[in-house]
Design a protein around this nucleic acid. Sequence first.
DNA 1: ATTATTTTGATTAATTTTGAACGAATTAAA
DNA 2: TTTAATTCGTTCAAAATTAATCAAAATAAT
Lengths: 259, 259
Amino acid sequence: MNQKARLDTIIHFLNEHQNISVDEACKLLDASPATVRRDFKLLSANGEVEKNWGGISRKIDYPSDMKPLTYRSTHFIEEKKAIARKASDLVQDGEVVMIDGGTTTLELSKILAHKKIRIITNSLLIVNNIHIERNGWEGAEVFLTGGFLYPDSGMLVGPEANKNLMGYHADWAFLSAGGINESGLTNSNQLVVETERTMIEQAEKTIVLADYSKIGIKSMCQVCGFDKIDRLVTNDKLEDEHFALLQANGLDEQNIILV
Amino acid sequence: MNQKARLDTIIHFLNEHQNISVDEACKLLDASPATVRRDFKLLSANGEVEKNWGGISRKIDYPSDMKPLTYRSTHFIEEKKAIARKASDLVQDGEVVMIDGGTTTLELSKILAHKKIRIITNSLLIVNNIHIERNGWEGAEVFLTGGFLYPDSGMLVGPEANKNLMGYHADWAFLSAGGINESGLTNSNQLVVETERTMIEQAEKTIVLADYSKIGIKSMCQVCGFDKIDRLVTNDKLEDEHFALLQANGLDEQNIILV
DNA sequence: ATTATTTTGATTAATTTTGAACGAATTAAA
DNA sequence: TTTAATTCGTTCAAAATTAATCAAAATAAT
């Protein structure tokens, strides 16, 4: 493996994980510590990663408008993956799934890409990742809604997107959360919220994926009340106060899936 | 295996993988290191790939979660770019443009991305590239059709895609060609051809982009006859025989734009 | 069929990269 | 604070990669 291939492998690894140590990289690249250190030095000199004692880590907080369709938040990657894995267990072969945009639902889509299901989404980022995950015609069939491409988030929104969603019927709607508070589910973009509402309408069951940092947070736009949420998948790092908030609104052990 | 075949094999390999080493290429091409190096040198001199110690890699290294649906290297890239540049001159600010999938139309979309126009397309590849090309909210507004994502080509097809296209009206339809022969425009995928037909219906003027290698070729599916083609943009390497073919079907100096 | 031209593969010397060793620097433990 | 254990960066010899040269093989032209 030559240098360029090694650097690519490291970057690829960091897209999936938060950080990588010298030892891990040695195994991954089949190279000596000296070489790995030289590679790390190169990457950090280029400003692509952050150097720290024992390894390197992803730079937190990309300027989001610079890398439009790539990963946003690099925080809680492992937590999000765990939540996604748990949520994916709900889905059986042959079912139809609607997936909202968001970093946690993105992880979910990577897993679901391998199942024999139909996926309907309005997120370009998710479609791109499914395309990478699966092999040609194997795995899930994908249906994308049409509509206006919202530049920042890479999501398709507007009346056309909604009309498209209304043309489909799904077993599950997997939604991401901007925040969950006493009034229910909220998100930051009005146009995206519209499509989320439509997904809720068109699906049998609505599942919300939210790591613990989202509970107690209120975003600008109201998506729906707790009555529409059938299941909430979240971390077990949940504070008592937040757990009480959920229970007071009708979500109990049955509906809350902790990972 | 001759040189042309080797270069094609390498390019094809690089469409699937990020990079290729000299050793890998030796096995893949059944050739000696010396020959492989000469090939690598050629490709990098042409600017088609990036040279690095121990091998070559794809020139444009977009974020890993967009790879398959982004750039695919091709031959005749400069010709295609030249055709795209010429075609883009037709479009004025404020107009609405439909763009078909294809490598030449892809180049066109990169140019049009910077104009103050509206772009309607059913190609994910094109949408991704526009997204990269322009800066957030600057440049063209993009509308994507919904539909079934055809795995290989990354295009949205099927009844939903057609219905979406029929909801829009455009000044221009820019189509790519699988082949152009005495019966008119042909392409290889039945479902894609359907959307191309719809684009022709919904646009004021239909422009076909085709490098000279496409003239005289017949693909499986008929898109339309010459009567629907308002302009053909192609190279001036056109053979006399092919030029005659075009003229015999009503395309003259007025309609054929040579670059 | 013969000759000229191009392409290929082996050889070699120069250059670059790599891995191991070791002292310096940093963190963790006592 | 002192000590032990990692980790880091650098040096240097070994290994790998490259470009150049040249003869053999393949291809094209006469």
